[in-house]
Amino acid sequence: MKQLVCPFSEKSVRGLAAGDAVAIHGRIYTGRDKFHKYFADGGRLPVDFRNGALYHCGPVVIERGGGYAVVSAGPTTSVRENAYEPAFIEASGVRVIIGKGGMDSATLAAMKKFGCVYIQAVGGGGAAYADSVKRVAGVSLLKEFGAAEAVWHLDVENFRGIVAMDARGRSLFDDVRLASLRRLEEMFRS
């Protein structure tokens, strides 16, 4: 298990290979559909993503003791952000994108060019990921986007995932899709 600690250096990110299991520690920020649309429409980034992490997630958050607590924080499907992500990677300097299901070849190319990786979190793993959130340090765009779409500032420990798209241009999803298609054709011939 490789340990990734925020801030993430370009060197540490480029050293990761598709298939590596990782544990993330430190600050990550959530951002999903409304956040990406806001960015594409010219909205000012509410936090500094340089050498940071973006998590495609709409958490269930409750108010507790004057602050916030995360009840469930699993990943949401990433493909919906394909259209926005290459420009976001270039403009923000983000090093780690966490989500579910992978992203397209244009995003993969941007990751290679600017030094960024995609980490697959486990879909449906909301309770375990909520457990790894040690503190909700803040929130941005809450009034504008609502709780499920806001940018939550989460301090995590031991947030586990798999590097599924690396900064060398390899996507585990593409490998698996191609191999399974070959196997299917083989079975259809037999």
Binding site: V60, S72, A73, Q120, G124, G126, A127, A128, A130, I162
Partner: peptide
């Protein structure tokens, strides 16, 4: 690794009585 996270998740959710998926 994925299956371990799934099983950990199930244990956490069952112990707390919280939804295992959001």
């Amino acid at each position: 690794e994925v299956l371990k996270t799934i099983l950990d998740n199930c244990a956490v959710a069952a112990a707390r009585g919280t939804p295992l998926c959001q």
